[in-house]
Write a protein that binds this DNA or RNA. Structure first.
Lengths: 260, 260
DNA sequence: GAGTGGTCTAGACCACCTT
DNA sequence: AGGTGGTCTAGACCACTCA
């Protein structure tokens, strides 16, 4: 046996059997990370494929499990792999590209990229407008609003949950409808309301609490929070939408005209 | 002494002295996270303040250091705290809001939010156009291009590095100028080129390798990659810009008109 | 030089998924 | 029931920062 930490920091040629001229791969977990990343890039591990278990990697690579996990976390942060809780680690599929200036709904643009979309309504209810939402929807705090929670999937994998707030006066009877479809489509066809403008804001976040549970990811998983307020041509707020995305599945892309 | 893991999962009343009706705080690191988060929310810990050291938290809270660190990582992922490598953990300042449709440069919009911007040119050189960049700039692969690396700070903290590629024919002598200023300003004043349109794309990423070193963060830190191609009114590509942001410092916000 | 975070080891039990 | 990841313990040494 070798003493704890005697040559734990590689740099000498102990780390892995794969003879490499490390350069930056001095740290063991970086070596593990890069070797896994290379297998993914090379295609030895294809999207959707399952990685060997942590314990088998531990044995194969001759490092302790924490080091393997650190490497896995890095790859997860890069969006190269993801985990199904207590099931295993899998190679992540390519990102989908979302253009918030396009009028197509989720279902349409995901399908257009050759992927399989699916929407699931988790809850729909009447709630009192919060201090935050009331001024946005243009109602008094405490006034009735519609609140819809939906989960959306791509290729069978849950990739976002969204919280939608609406003004009931604009959409009477909305909650009685099937909402597993494009909401902008329902607004247009059934209520004659068309989104012509939106204010979009987004920031990297962590998925915690209810969001993490809804997406079945570990609390603290990195995510992207995307908030959208949709207006019609008259300037009425049609929808206030908070979307919590897995960080590894989306790319935002749009053309912007510079303001004068 | 107590056996390894006998009551390691709280739920019973072992976890922390702070009597709480956990609800979701069953896991020890979530309890630690939430108690720290509460101190930040309450203002006991103010932006910029330094947290107690991991070892002192370990003693205070009666858990092992790994548990403390897991809690710290979660708060980091949420953007509530950040680390200065090997120095300590600090409470994060509020995010700045970036609107890619505004023509103001970094220096102007950061200052407008009451923060102190600073730009630093890390390198500027002539390089051969890569396969990726050539078609974007409209030159042949291998043709000469300008390549500028800059690091930008907010309130003294490095918050992004950017890689800028330009077509030398449009900006002769650019590399001899001071580039620690607004590039769009230089383009406009010195070359009569005005950005009127941009294609912007962004996705959550991990800061690794050179980016991580430039920003002095640990490899694998979550980040936001923002890529921008700027055009003038004639449709010429003025600039191809890759920005690597710390994940916790920025919020993107813009108004979009829906395409017909 | 003292103190900090960063990395690493060698174990253990638990909750959950899969078969 | 067996295997997986998730959490936890109790150590150790290292590289770096800061005073």
């Amino acid at each position: 046996m070798f003493g704890a930490g005697a040559d734990q920091h590689a740099g000498m040629d102990s780390a892995l059997q794969t003879a490499e001229p490390p350069a930056r791969g001095r740290l063991q977990y970086l070596v593990v990370r890069d070797s896994l990343a290379e297998e993914i890039a090379r295609g030895t591990l294809k999207p959707g494929a399952r990685l060997p278990s942590e314990r088998s990697l531990q044995v194969t690579l001759g490092v302790y499990r924490g080091t393997v996990r650190e490497a896995l976390f890095q790859l997860e942060a890069e969006g190269l792999i993801y985990r199904k809780e207590r099931s295993g680690w899998y190679v992540a599929p390519p990102r989908v590209t979302y253009d918030p200036s396009r009028p197509e709904g989720f279902t349409a643009w995901v399908a257009a990229q050759g992927r399989v979309p699916q929407t699931e309504t988790l809850s729909k209810e009447r709630v009192e407008a919060s201090e935050l939402v009331a001024p946005i929807l243009g109602v008094r705090p405490g006034a009735p609003t519609f609140f819809v929670r939906r989960r959306r999937h791509i290729d069978g994998r849950a990739c976002l949950v969204e919280h939608i707030s609406l003004n009931p006066k604009l959409f009477p009877g909305l909650l009685e409808r099937d909402l597993d479809v494009s909401l902008t489509g329902v607004m247009r066809r059934d209520y004659g309301r068309v989104v012509t403008r939106a204010e979009v804001s987004m920031y990297p976040c962590a998925l915690t609490g209810a969001q993490a549970e809804d997406l079945r990811v570990k609390s603290g998983t990195p995510g992207l929070c995307l908030i959208r307020t949709c207006f019609d041509a008259a300037g009425a707020v049609l929808e206030y939408d908070q979307e919590f995305w897995r960080h590894d599945i989306i790319r935002i892309s749009l053309a912007v005209a510079m303001q004068a």
